[in-house]
């Protein structure tokens, strides 16, 4: 549904997107993951026809972004990073205007606005001025605006940024609810957003592709070792050393207030780790599985910080 090949965007000397290639299958939710400044917004702007690429190709819903921009624009719903709202309009008036310029036929416009209001949970706010609604609701208006013409593809740039945790959960819920009807590409710099919402991910850093594929594929290829991250009430270097003695453990590392304990794939030492912590009275505050993709992303981000 979305295909990007050898896509490059230069701003003078600066290369924002560098030879990027990835694919998103129809009906799936894909995450575009990367630290700030990785080229996520630029990639999305090229896909939606807002910016021209320097070189390379991109097709959306079978149309070339450069040769058939109007067909692409009709097939895409786009939530830009800065939600494009006219603050002096009411929610309903704004959605009606967007329906007009997205060329929803006149007979279907009213129904389209009603459907978008319903889907985005805005029914009770339809008559309010956009400038008077909360940030979370503005974000919902942004999503409603993106889906007003029932596009095949939704491109959402940082849909949960700047929201409080309850709002984030609501927006994620909303996006999950759109799975199947739409192909969705959403950008984020928060890994849990990908693991909770997406079927697959494209990880980019400084404009380059680092990894891409479905979450299962990535997990299988990168997760050669299994392990846990534990947070202990007494969790210093001394305590970390205790775990090194556990049979089967390959690697133990102290990372901040967390201890990372790894072992070869195929075994499960979680019970042993917990038993040791209980026996020694270390006080388990938290223990969670280490995800391979998380590891990969941390490496990407750390690599970005080193240079």
């Amino acid at each position: 549904m979305i295909e990007v090949r050898e896509l490059t965007k230069r701003y003078g000397e600066h290369v924002a997107v560098n030879n990027l290639a990835f694919k998103v299958e129809a009906g799936r939710i894909w995450g575009l993951l990367g630290p700030n400044g990785a080229g996520k917004t630029t990639t999305m702007r090229i896909l939606t026809g807002y910016l021209p690429a320097t070189s390379g190709r991109a097709t959306v819903a079978g149309f070339d972004v450069f040769d058939r921009p109007d067909d692409v624009k009709r097939s895409i719903g786009y939530l830009p990073e800065i939600v494009p709202l006219y603050l002096d309009m009411t929610v309903r008036g704004y959605l009606a205007f967007v329906a007009e310029i997205k060329q929803v036929p006149k007979a279907r416009r009213k129904a389209a606005v009603a459907r978008a209001l319903e889907a985005a949970g805005l029914k009770d706010h339809a008559g309010r001025l956009i400038k008077n609604i909360s940030r979370g609701y503005k974000q919902r208006v942004g999503i409603a605006q993106a889906m007003i013409h029932d596009p095949k593809v939704l491109v959402l740039d940082e849909p949960t940024i700047g929201l409080d945790p309850a709002q984030i959960r609501e927006i994620r819920e909303l996006i999950r609810g759109l799975r199947g009807e739409h192909t969705i590409l959403l950008s984020t710099h928060i890994l849990p957003e990908v693991t909770q919402v997406c079927d697959g991910v494209v990880i980019i850093d400084r404009g380059r592709l680092m990894a891409s594929g479905s979450l299962e594929e990535l997990a299988a290829s990168f997760e050669k070792s299994d392990g846990v991250l534990v947070r202990l009430r007494r969790g210093g270097a001394e305590e970390a050393a205790l775990f090194r003695g556990l049979p089967g453990v390959d690697r133990v590392a102290l990372e901040g207030d967390e201890i990372r304990i790894e072992w070869g794939r195929g075994r499960d030492l979680r019970d042993d780790v917990a038993r040791l912590a209980l026996d020694k009275g270390l006080g388990i505050k938290e223990m969670r599985s280490m995800a391979g993709i998380e590891d990969l992303y941390m490496k990407v981000v750390a690599g970005g910080l080193e240079q």
């Binding site: 939606t48 807002y50 009709r74 786009y78 800065i82 494009p84 709202l85 967007v98 310029i101 060329q103």
Partner: peptide, 13 residues
């Protein structure tokens, strides 16, 4: 200034 141009330019106008 407000970024609403992004809506106009990504619409079939």
């Amino acid at each position: 200034k407000t970024g609403t141009d992004e809506l106009l330019y990504t619409s079939p106008l």
